[in-house]
Nucleic acid binder design. Structure first.
Lengths: 211, 211
DNA sequence: GTTCGATTGAAACGAACGTTTGACTCATGT
DNA sequence: ACATGAGTCAAACGTTCGTTTCAATCGAAC
Protein backbone atom coordinates (compact mmCIF):
# COMPACT_ATOMS: atom_id res chain seq x y z
CA UNK A 1 0.00 0.00 0.00
CA UNK A 2 1.26 3.40 -0.89
CA UNK A 3 1.44 5.63 2.14
CA UNK A 4 -0.57 8.81 1.65
CA UNK A 5 1.12 11.91 0.40
CA UNK A 6 1.40 15.08 2.40
CA UNK A 7 -1.64 16.65 0.83
CA UNK A 8 -3.87 13.75 1.80
CA UNK A 9 -2.41 13.50 5.29
CA UNK A 10 -3.19 17.16 5.82
CA UNK A 11 -6.73 16.71 4.54
CA UNK A 12 -7.26 13.79 6.92
CA UNK A 13 -5.90 15.64 9.90
CA UNK A 14 -7.86 18.76 9.08
CA UNK A 15 -11.08 16.80 8.67
CA UNK A 16 -10.57 15.29 12.09
CA UNK A 17 -9.75 18.54 13.84
CA UNK A 18 -12.32 20.73 12.09
CA UNK A 19 -15.00 18.22 13.04
CA UNK A 20 -13.97 18.24 16.66
CA UNK A 21 -13.02 21.83 17.34
CA UNK A 22 -14.53 23.79 14.47
CA UNK A 23 -12.81 26.03 11.99
CA UNK A 24 -11.74 28.78 14.33
CA UNK A 25 -10.84 26.34 17.06
CA UNK A 26 -8.37 24.53 14.86
CA UNK A 27 -4.98 26.07 14.17
CA UNK A 28 -2.94 25.35 11.11
CA UNK A 29 -0.18 24.24 13.42
CA UNK A 30 -2.43 21.65 15.03
CA UNK A 31 -3.31 20.30 11.60
CA UNK A 32 0.26 19.98 10.40
CA UNK A 33 1.40 18.50 13.70
CA UNK A 34 -1.28 15.82 13.56
CA UNK A 35 -0.49 15.19 9.92
CA UNK A 36 3.22 14.98 10.61
CA UNK A 37 3.83 17.67 8.04
CA UNK A 38 5.50 21.01 8.01
CA UNK A 39 3.62 24.16 8.88
CA UNK A 40 4.22 25.69 5.49
CA UNK A 41 2.75 22.69 3.71
CA UNK A 42 -0.76 24.04 4.17
CA UNK A 43 0.13 27.24 2.42
CA UNK A 44 1.90 25.35 -0.31
CA UNK A 45 -0.77 22.77 -1.06
CA UNK A 46 -3.93 24.74 -0.36
CA UNK A 47 -3.02 28.41 -0.33
CA UNK A 48 -4.65 29.30 2.95
CA UNK A 49 -6.50 27.86 5.91
CA UNK A 50 -9.83 28.88 4.40
CA UNK A 51 -9.09 27.03 1.18
CA UNK A 52 -8.05 24.00 3.22
CA UNK A 53 -11.47 24.04 4.84
CA UNK A 54 -13.11 24.27 1.45
CA UNK A 55 -11.10 21.31 0.23
CA UNK A 56 -12.04 19.27 3.30
CA UNK A 57 -15.68 20.20 2.90
CA UNK A 58 -15.73 19.32 -0.76
CA UNK A 59 -14.14 15.94 -0.16
CA UNK A 60 -16.77 15.07 2.44
CA UNK A 61 -19.82 16.53 0.78
CA UNK A 62 -19.28 15.50 -2.81
CA UNK A 63 -19.99 11.78 -2.32
CA UNK A 64 -23.00 12.63 -0.18
CA UNK A 65 -24.46 14.84 -2.86
CA UNK A 66 -23.77 12.15 -5.41
CA UNK A 67 -25.50 9.54 -3.27
CA UNK A 68 -28.49 11.81 -2.80
CA UNK A 69 -28.70 12.37 -6.51
CA UNK A 70 -28.36 8.70 -7.35
CA UNK A 71 -30.94 7.78 -4.73
CA UNK A 72 -33.43 10.16 -6.26
CA UNK A 73 -32.71 8.84 -9.73
CA UNK A 74 -33.41 5.34 -8.55
CA UNK A 75 -36.60 6.41 -6.85
CA UNK A 76 -37.90 8.31 -9.85
CA UNK A 77 -37.09 5.42 -12.14
CA UNK A 78 -39.44 3.27 -10.11
CA UNK A 79 -42.29 5.71 -9.78
CA UNK A 80 -42.73 9.33 -10.92
CA UNK A 81 -44.21 10.30 -7.54
CA UNK A 82 -42.33 8.65 -4.69
CA UNK A 83 -43.88 8.72 -1.23
CA UNK A 84 -42.47 11.02 1.43
CA UNK A 85 -40.89 8.23 3.45
CA UNK A 86 -38.72 7.14 0.55
CA UNK A 87 -37.76 10.67 -0.31
CA UNK A 88 -36.67 11.24 3.27
CA UNK A 89 -34.65 8.06 3.27
CA UNK A 90 -32.96 8.90 -0.01
CA UNK A 91 -32.18 12.43 1.10
CA UNK A 92 -31.24 11.97 4.74
CA UNK A 93 -29.72 8.53 4.48
CA UNK A 94 -26.47 9.60 2.82
CA UNK A 95 -25.96 12.12 5.57
CA UNK A 96 -25.49 9.20 7.92
CA UNK A 97 -24.11 6.54 5.67
CA UNK A 98 -20.59 7.80 5.33
CA UNK A 99 -19.34 5.46 7.99
CA UNK A 100 -17.25 2.59 6.67
CA UNK A 101 -18.37 0.22 9.43
CA UNK A 102 -15.42 1.32 11.50
CA UNK A 103 -17.60 3.23 13.92
CA UNK A 104 -14.92 5.70 14.86
CA UNK A 105 -14.98 7.79 11.73
CA UNK A 106 -18.72 7.52 11.32
CA UNK A 107 -19.90 10.11 13.76
CA UNK A 108 -17.08 12.33 12.60
CA UNK A 109 -18.45 12.92 9.14
CA UNK A 110 -21.86 14.13 10.19
CA UNK A 111 -20.21 16.09 12.95
CA UNK A 112 -17.97 17.74 10.40
CA UNK A 113 -20.85 18.63 8.15
CA UNK A 114 -22.76 20.15 10.98
CA UNK A 115 -19.78 21.99 12.31
CA UNK A 116 -19.18 23.45 8.89
CA UNK A 117 -22.81 24.24 8.22
CA UNK A 118 -23.32 25.93 11.55
CA UNK A 119 -19.98 27.65 11.82
CA UNK A 120 -20.49 31.37 12.12
CA UNK A 121 -17.16 32.01 10.45
CA UNK A 122 -17.36 33.63 7.07
CA UNK A 123 -14.91 31.19 5.56
CA UNK A 124 -17.16 28.21 6.25
CA UNK A 125 -19.78 29.42 3.81
CA UNK A 126 -18.10 29.09 0.48
CA UNK A 127 -18.02 25.42 -0.31
CA UNK A 128 -21.30 24.76 -2.10
CA UNK A 129 -21.22 24.18 -5.78
CA UNK A 130 -23.81 23.87 -8.52
CA UNK A 131 -24.27 20.16 -7.75
CA UNK A 132 -25.62 20.84 -4.29
CA UNK A 133 -28.05 23.36 -5.70
CA UNK A 134 -29.24 20.97 -8.36
CA UNK A 135 -29.88 18.18 -5.88
CA UNK A 136 -31.67 20.58 -3.60
CA UNK A 137 -33.96 21.74 -6.38
CA UNK A 138 -34.75 18.22 -7.49
CA UNK A 139 -35.70 17.11 -3.99
CA UNK A 140 -37.70 20.26 -3.47
CA UNK A 141 -39.71 19.47 -6.57
CA UNK A 142 -40.18 15.84 -5.57
CA UNK A 143 -41.28 16.75 -2.06
CA UNK A 144 -43.62 19.39 -3.45
CA UNK A 145 -45.37 16.75 -5.53
CA UNK A 146 -45.55 14.37 -2.60
CA UNK A 147 -46.90 17.07 -0.31
CA UNK A 148 -49.52 18.98 -2.25
CA UNK A 149 -50.88 22.01 -0.47
CA UNK A 150 -47.66 22.71 1.40
CA UNK A 151 -46.44 26.25 0.85
CA UNK A 152 -42.97 26.46 -0.72
CA UNK A 153 -41.64 28.38 2.26
CA UNK A 154 -42.82 25.78 4.72
CA UNK A 155 -41.37 23.05 2.58
CA UNK A 156 -38.05 24.84 2.57
CA UNK A 157 -38.28 25.15 6.33
CA UNK A 158 -38.83 21.43 6.65
CA UNK A 159 -35.91 20.59 4.41
CA UNK A 160 -33.73 22.71 6.58
CA UNK A 161 -35.11 20.69 9.46
CA UNK A 162 -33.66 17.57 7.93
CA UNK A 163 -30.21 19.06 8.08
CA UNK A 164 -30.81 20.29 11.57
CA UNK A 165 -31.76 16.88 12.89
CA UNK A 166 -28.59 15.49 11.42
CA UNK A 167 -26.88 18.03 13.59
CA UNK A 168 -28.50 16.55 16.62
CA UNK A 169 -25.31 15.16 18.05
CA UNK A 170 -24.01 18.63 18.60
CA UNK A 171 -26.61 19.45 21.23
CA UNK A 172 -24.53 18.48 24.18
CA UNK A 173 -27.04 19.26 26.87
CA UNK A 174 -29.04 16.25 25.98
CA UNK A 175 -26.05 14.01 25.96
CA UNK A 176 -25.43 14.33 29.64
CA UNK A 177 -26.50 11.29 31.62
CA UNK A 178 -30.03 11.46 32.80
CA UNK A 179 -31.79 9.60 35.63
CA UNK A 180 -34.56 8.64 33.20
CA UNK A 181 -32.14 7.44 30.53
CA UNK A 182 -28.66 6.66 31.79
CA UNK A 183 -27.16 5.03 28.72
CA UNK A 184 -25.93 7.08 25.82
CA UNK A 185 -27.04 6.29 22.29
CA UNK A 186 -24.80 4.69 19.71
CA UNK A 187 -24.29 5.95 16.19
CA UNK A 188 -26.00 3.35 14.07
CA UNK A 189 -29.39 3.52 15.73
CA UNK A 190 -29.49 7.28 15.32
CA UNK A 191 -29.83 6.81 11.58
CA UNK A 192 -33.05 4.81 11.91
CA UNK A 193 -34.39 7.10 14.57
CA UNK A 194 -33.72 10.09 12.39
CA UNK A 195 -35.52 8.56 9.41
CA UNK A 196 -38.53 7.81 11.59
CA UNK A 197 -38.45 11.27 13.11
CA UNK A 198 -38.06 13.06 9.81
CA UNK A 199 -40.55 11.03 7.83
CA UNK A 200 -43.24 11.85 10.34
CA UNK A 201 -42.21 15.48 10.39
CA UNK A 202 -42.12 15.88 6.64
CA UNK A 203 -45.46 14.15 6.27
CA UNK A 204 -47.22 16.52 8.64
CA UNK A 205 -50.17 18.38 7.14
CA UNK A 206 -49.47 21.99 6.20
CA UNK A 207 -49.64 24.52 8.99
CA UNK A 208 -52.84 26.46 8.58
CA UNK A 209 -52.16 30.15 8.29
CA UNK A 210 -52.38 31.78 11.72
CA UNK A 211 -54.87 34.58 12.34
CA UNK B 1 -35.35 56.34 31.60
CA UNK B 2 -32.10 55.40 33.19
CA UNK B 3 -29.51 54.57 30.63
CA UNK B 4 -28.04 51.11 31.13
CA UNK B 5 -24.85 50.70 33.10
CA UNK B 6 -21.66 49.41 31.57
CA UNK B 7 -22.22 45.85 32.70
CA UNK B 8 -25.57 45.67 30.91
CA UNK B 9 -24.27 47.41 27.83
CA UNK B 10 -21.51 44.82 27.60
CA UNK B 11 -24.00 41.99 28.04
CA UNK B 12 -26.16 43.39 25.25
CA UNK B 13 -23.27 43.85 22.89
CA UNK B 14 -21.86 40.42 23.66
CA UNK B 15 -25.23 38.78 23.11
CA UNK B 16 -25.48 40.42 19.73
CA UNK B 17 -21.97 39.52 18.63
CA UNK B 18 -21.87 36.02 20.04
CA UNK B 19 -25.11 35.24 18.25
CA UNK B 20 -23.77 36.50 14.96
CA UNK B 21 -20.15 35.42 14.96
CA UNK B 22 -19.94 32.77 17.66
CA UNK B 23 -17.73 32.70 20.70
CA UNK B 24 -14.39 32.38 19.00
CA UNK B 25 -15.37 34.77 16.24
CA UNK B 26 -16.07 37.55 18.70
CA UNK B 27 -13.20 39.44 20.26
CA UNK B 28 -13.40 41.17 23.59
CA UNK B 29 -12.42 44.34 21.80
CA UNK B 30 -15.36 44.04 19.42
CA UNK B 31 -17.69 43.68 22.38
CA UNK B 32 -16.38 46.67 24.27
CA UNK B 33 -16.30 48.77 21.12
CA UNK B 34 -19.93 48.00 20.35
CA UNK B 35 -20.86 48.59 23.96
CA UNK B 36 -18.98 51.89 24.03
CA UNK B 37 -16.99 50.65 27.00
CA UNK B 38 -13.36 50.21 27.78
CA UNK B 39 -11.52 47.03 26.94
CA UNK B 40 -10.69 46.33 30.57
CA UNK B 41 -14.34 46.53 31.59
CA UNK B 42 -14.92 42.92 30.60
CA UNK B 43 -12.21 41.72 32.91
CA UNK B 44 -13.48 43.97 35.67
CA UNK B 45 -17.16 43.04 35.48
CA UNK B 46 -16.97 39.41 34.39
CA UNK B 47 -13.45 38.18 35.03
CA UNK B 48 -12.83 36.70 31.62
CA UNK B 49 -14.30 36.27 28.17
CA UNK B 50 -15.50 32.77 29.05
CA UNK B 51 -17.36 34.06 32.09
CA UNK B 52 -18.90 36.78 29.96
CA UNK B 53 -20.26 34.09 27.67
CA UNK B 54 -21.66 32.22 30.64
CA UNK B 55 -23.36 35.39 31.87
CA UNK B 56 -24.85 36.04 28.43
CA UNK B 57 -26.05 32.47 28.16
CA UNK B 58 -27.60 32.52 31.62
CA UNK B 59 -29.45 35.73 30.92
CA UNK B 60 -30.97 34.32 27.74
CA UNK B 61 -31.68 30.80 28.88
CA UNK B 62 -33.04 31.41 32.36
CA UNK B 63 -36.38 32.92 31.27
CA UNK B 64 -36.78 30.21 28.65
CA UNK B 65 -36.28 27.49 31.21
CA UNK B 66 -38.70 29.25 33.51
CA UNK B 67 -41.30 29.48 30.76
CA UNK B 68 -40.87 25.84 29.91
CA UNK B 69 -41.32 24.90 33.52
CA UNK B 70 -44.36 27.12 33.98
CA UNK B 71 -45.88 25.80 30.79
CA UNK B 72 -45.55 22.25 31.99
CA UNK B 73 -47.03 23.16 35.36
CA UNK B 74 -50.02 24.65 33.63
CA UNK B 75 -50.42 21.61 31.41
CA UNK B 76 -50.19 19.14 34.26
CA UNK B 77 -52.66 21.13 36.31
CA UNK B 78 -55.20 20.64 33.56
CA UNK B 79 -54.60 16.95 32.93
CA UNK B 80 -52.11 14.47 34.36
CA UNK B 81 -51.33 13.12 30.89
CA UNK B 82 -51.08 15.92 28.32
CA UNK B 83 -51.04 14.99 24.64
CA UNK B 84 -47.84 15.22 22.65
CA UNK B 85 -48.87 18.31 20.72
CA UNK B 86 -49.30 20.34 23.86
CA UNK B 87 -46.06 19.10 25.33
CA UNK B 88 -44.23 20.11 22.18
CA UNK B 89 -45.81 23.52 22.23
CA UNK B 90 -44.95 24.07 25.89
CA UNK B 91 -41.39 22.90 25.40
CA UNK B 92 -40.51 24.36 22.02
CA UNK B 93 -42.63 27.49 22.21
CA UNK B 94 -40.42 29.39 24.65
CA UNK B 95 -37.45 28.74 22.40
CA UNK B 96 -39.11 31.01 19.87
CA UNK B 97 -41.07 33.37 22.03
CA UNK B 98 -38.28 35.56 23.27
CA UNK B 99 -38.99 38.14 20.64
CA UNK B 100 -40.61 41.31 21.92
CA UNK B 101 -42.55 41.87 18.71
CA UNK B 102 -39.67 43.97 17.44
CA UNK B 103 -38.68 41.43 14.87
CA UNK B 104 -35.05 42.40 14.80
CA UNK B 105 -34.02 40.85 18.09
CA UNK B 106 -36.26 37.86 17.67
CA UNK B 107 -34.18 35.66 15.47
CA UNK B 108 -31.16 36.68 17.49
CA UNK B 109 -32.16 34.83 20.61
CA UNK B 110 -32.65 31.46 19.01
CA UNK B 111 -29.58 32.08 16.94
CA UNK B 112 -27.62 32.75 20.10
CA UNK B 113 -28.85 29.61 21.77
CA UNK B 114 -27.95 27.53 18.79
CA UNK B 115 -24.60 29.16 18.38
CA UNK B 116 -23.82 28.46 22.00
CA UNK B 117 -25.18 24.94 21.96
CA UNK B 118 -23.32 23.99 18.84
CA UNK B 119 -20.10 25.85 19.50
CA UNK B 120 -17.21 23.44 19.55
CA UNK B 121 -15.34 25.67 21.98
CA UNK B 122 -14.81 24.24 25.40
CA UNK B 123 -15.93 27.39 27.13
CA UNK B 124 -19.39 27.25 25.60
CA UNK B 125 -20.27 24.12 27.54
CA UNK B 126 -20.41 25.32 31.10
CA UNK B 127 -23.58 27.29 31.44
CA UNK B 128 -26.25 24.74 32.37
CA UNK B 129 -27.53 24.72 35.91
CA UNK B 130 -29.75 22.39 37.92
CA UNK B 131 -32.87 24.15 36.64
CA UNK B 132 -32.25 23.08 33.07
CA UNK B 133 -31.71 19.50 34.20
CA UNK B 134 -34.91 19.52 36.24
CA UNK B 135 -37.00 20.82 33.36
CA UNK B 136 -35.45 18.29 31.03
CA UNK B 137 -36.28 15.43 33.38
CA UNK B 138 -39.84 16.59 33.84
CA UNK B 139 -40.49 16.82 30.12
CA UNK B 140 -38.79 13.49 29.54
CA UNK B 141 -41.18 11.91 32.03
CA UNK B 142 -44.21 13.62 30.51
CA UNK B 143 -43.25 12.62 26.97
CA UNK B 144 -42.57 9.09 28.13
CA UNK B 145 -46.13 8.85 29.46
CA UNK B 146 -47.55 10.36 26.28
CA UNK B 147 -45.51 8.03 24.08
CA UNK B 148 -45.73 4.57 25.62
CA UNK B 149 -43.54 2.00 23.94
CA UNK B 150 -40.88 4.49 22.93
CA UNK B 151 -37.45 3.50 24.16
CA UNK B 152 -35.83 6.06 26.47
CA UNK B 153 -32.88 6.46 24.13
CA UNK B 154 -35.09 7.21 21.17
CA UNK B 155 -37.09 9.66 23.24
CA UNK B 156 -33.89 11.42 24.19
CA UNK B 157 -32.91 11.50 20.53
CA UNK B 158 -36.19 13.13 19.66
CA UNK B 159 -35.89 15.74 22.36
CA UNK B 160 -32.51 16.65 20.99
CA UNK B 161 -34.25 16.93 17.66
CA UNK B 162 -36.43 19.66 19.09
CA UNK B 163 -33.38 21.72 19.88
CA UNK B 164 -31.90 20.97 16.51
CA UNK B 165 -34.92 22.20 14.60
CA UNK B 166 -34.77 25.41 16.57
CA UNK B 167 -31.31 25.68 15.16
CA UNK B 168 -32.70 25.55 11.69
CA UNK B 169 -31.86 29.11 10.84
CA UNK B 170 -28.20 28.31 10.99
CA UNK B 171 -28.31 26.04 7.98
CA UNK B 172 -27.40 28.64 5.46
CA UNK B 173 -27.45 26.47 2.39
CA UNK B 174 -31.18 26.35 2.47
CA UNK B 175 -31.46 30.06 2.88
CA UNK B 176 -30.07 30.83 -0.50
CA UNK B 177 -32.68 31.89 -3.00
CA UNK B 178 -34.15 29.02 -4.93
CA UNK B 179 -35.95 28.93 -8.24
CA UNK B 180 -38.73 26.90 -6.62
CA UNK B 181 -39.05 29.25 -3.65
CA UNK B 182 -37.59 32.68 -4.21
CA UNK B 183 -38.85 34.46 -1.10
CA UNK B 184 -37.15 34.02 2.23
CA UNK B 185 -39.18 33.10 5.28
CA UNK B 186 -39.93 35.52 8.09
CA UNK B 187 -39.38 34.79 11.75
CA UNK B 188 -42.88 34.54 13.13
CA UNK B 189 -44.12 31.85 10.81
CA UNK B 190 -41.15 29.66 11.63
CA UNK B 191 -42.56 29.18 15.11
CA UNK B 192 -45.80 27.66 13.83
CA UNK B 193 -44.01 25.62 11.23
CA UNK B 194 -41.67 24.26 13.86
CA UNK B 195 -44.52 23.26 16.15
CA UNK B 196 -46.23 21.43 13.30
CA UNK B 197 -42.99 19.79 12.27
CA UNK B 198 -42.01 18.75 15.76
CA UNK B 199 -45.41 17.56 16.89
CA UNK B 200 -45.59 15.18 13.96
CA UNK B 201 -42.03 14.06 14.56
CA UNK B 202 -42.49 13.45 18.28
CA UNK B 203 -45.74 11.59 17.69
CA UNK B 204 -44.15 9.13 15.30
CA UNK B 205 -44.48 5.49 16.31
CA UNK B 206 -41.35 3.96 17.80
CA UNK B 207 -38.72 2.78 15.38
CA UNK B 208 -38.87 -0.99 15.28
CA UNK B 209 -35.53 -2.52 16.16
CA UNK B 210 -33.55 -3.16 12.96
CA UNK B 211 -32.32 -6.63 12.10
C1' DG C 1 26.88 15.14 -13.73
C1' DT C 2 24.17 18.87 -14.01
C1' DT C 3 19.86 21.31 -14.24
C1' DC C 4 15.29 22.11 -13.02
C1' DG C 5 10.74 22.02 -11.03
C1' DA C 6 8.43 20.27 -7.17
C1' DT C 7 8.35 19.71 -2.35
C1' DT C 8 9.91 20.20 2.41
C1' DG C 9 12.31 22.50 6.23
C1' DA C 10 13.35 26.05 9.93
C1' DA C 11 12.62 30.56 11.01
C1' DA C 12 10.62 34.71 11.16
C1' DC C 13 6.90 38.31 10.27
C1' DG C 14 3.14 41.29 11.62
C1' DA C 15 -1.28 41.25 13.36
C1' DA C 16 -4.77 40.07 16.65
C1' DC C 17 -5.91 38.02 20.69
C1' DG C 18 -7.14 37.72 26.13
C1' DT C 19 -5.47 39.52 30.05
C1' DT C 20 -3.13 42.59 33.43
C1' DT C 21 -1.44 46.78 35.24
C1' DG C 22 -1.45 51.17 37.47
C1' DA C 23 -2.93 55.68 37.40
C1' DC C 24 -7.02 58.42 37.21
C1' DT C 25 -12.08 60.02 38.13
C1' DC C 26 -15.60 60.86 41.08
C1' DA C 27 -19.51 60.27 44.06
C1' DT C 28 -20.01 59.10 48.88
C1' DG C 29 -19.31 58.98 53.98
C1' DT C 30 -17.05 61.05 57.74
C1' DA D 1 -11.38 68.74 53.81
C1' DC D 2 -10.16 64.26 53.29
C1' DA D 3 -10.19 59.26 52.76
C1' DT D 4 -12.49 55.42 50.49
C1' DG D 5 -13.89 52.41 47.16
C1' DA D 6 -16.00 51.32 42.82
C1' DG D 7 -15.47 52.15 38.23
C1' DT D 8 -13.02 53.76 34.05
C1' DC D 9 -9.12 54.58 31.18
C1' DA D 10 -4.86 54.14 28.10
C1' DA D 11 -1.16 51.28 27.66
C1' DA D 12 1.33 47.38 27.69
C1' DC D 13 2.25 42.22 28.28
C1' DG D 14 3.00 37.71 26.53
C1' DT D 15 1.01 34.39 23.56
C1' DT D 16 -0.86 32.47 19.50
C1' DC D 17 -2.31 32.95 15.09
C1' DG D 18 -2.03 32.73 9.61
C1' DT D 19 1.12 33.67 6.45
C1' DT D 20 5.57 34.42 4.17
C1' DT D 21 10.33 33.83 3.17
C1' DC D 22 14.24 31.51 1.61
C1' DA D 23 17.43 27.94 1.79
C1' DA D 24 17.77 22.84 1.59
C1' DT D 25 16.37 18.52 -0.44
C1' DC D 26 14.98 15.20 -3.78
C1' DG D 27 13.91 12.70 -8.11
C1' DA D 28 13.73 12.84 -12.90
C1' DA D 29 15.14 14.77 -17.48
C1' DC D 30 18.82 15.99 -20.30
Amino acid sequence: MALPDTRTKILDAAEHLFAEHGYRGTSVRAVTDLAGANLAAVGYHFGSKAELLAAVARRVIEPITAAQSAGLDELLARTPDPPVAELVEAFAGPLFDEMPAGSESGARTSQLIVTILSDPAEEARSWTGPDEDTVRERYLAAFARALPGLAPQELLFRMRGIFAVTAVDRVEVYHRPSPACPTVTAGEEARHWAITFLTAAMSAPPTRAPR
